[in-house]
C-alpha cells in the first residue's frame, strides 16, 4: 500500500484529506508542522507528501527545501495544498521541487484529479 504523509497545522484539514486519500488507497501518517514531518521522513520516506505552506515551527517551503537536501529526500512526490495562490508562490514551490499544487479550498474531486495528473492515483 502506498503511503502519504499529511502535513497541515489544521486538524480539520488533516481529517478531511485523510478521508479522501484513504479512499484513493493510501496509508496515512499525519504531521502538524514541517519539523514533525521531517522526523517522519527520516524514519521512513513516504511515497507522497500533501503539504501545507503556512505552518508554525517550520513552514512547508522550509520543509520542502530541507527534505530535498536529505539523503533519499528526492524520492517522495510533494503536492502542496495551501491558500497561497499567487503565481510567483506556485513557481517558487515548483522550483523547490514540488510535483503538483492544490489551492485551497479543495474537495475530493480536485485531490483525485491532481493525484492522477501527478501519476499518483
Amino acid at each position: 500500500m502506498k503511503t502519504c504523509l499529511l502535513v497541515d497545522d489544521s486538524r480539520v484539514i488533516r481529517k478531511v484529506a485523510r478521508r479522501i486519500l484513504e479512499d484513493l488507497g493510501y496509508e496515512i501518517a499525519e504531521a502538524s508542522d514541517g519539523l514533525e514531518a521531517l522526523a517522519w521522513c527520516r524514519a521512513a520516506m513516504p511515497d507522497v507528501i500533501l503539504l501545507d505552506w503556512n505552518m508554525p515551527v517550520m513552514n512547508g517551503m522550509e520543509f520542502l527545501r530541507t527534505l530535498r537536501a536529505e539523503p533519499g529526500g528526492d524520492t517522495p512526490k510533494v503536492v502542496f495544498c495551501t491558500v497561497e495562490s499567487h503565481p510567483d508562490r506556485i513557481r517558487e514551490a515548483l522550483a523547490a521541487g514540488a510535483t503538483e499544487y492544490i489551492m485551497k479550498p479543495f474537495d475530493g474531486d480536485i485531490i483525485a484529479a491532481k493525484f492522477e495528473m501527478a501519476g499518483l492515483a
Binding site: H86, P87, I90, R91, I110, A113, K114, M117, A118
Partner: peptide, 15 residues
C-alpha cells in the same frame, strides 16, 4: 484545478 496540471496553469494563465 479540475484537470489542469499546475505547470500548464502557470505557463498559460494569469491570475
Amino acid at each position: 484545478q479540475r484537470g489542469l496540471p499546475i505547470q500548464q496553469l502557470v505557463r498559460h494563465f494569469e491570475k
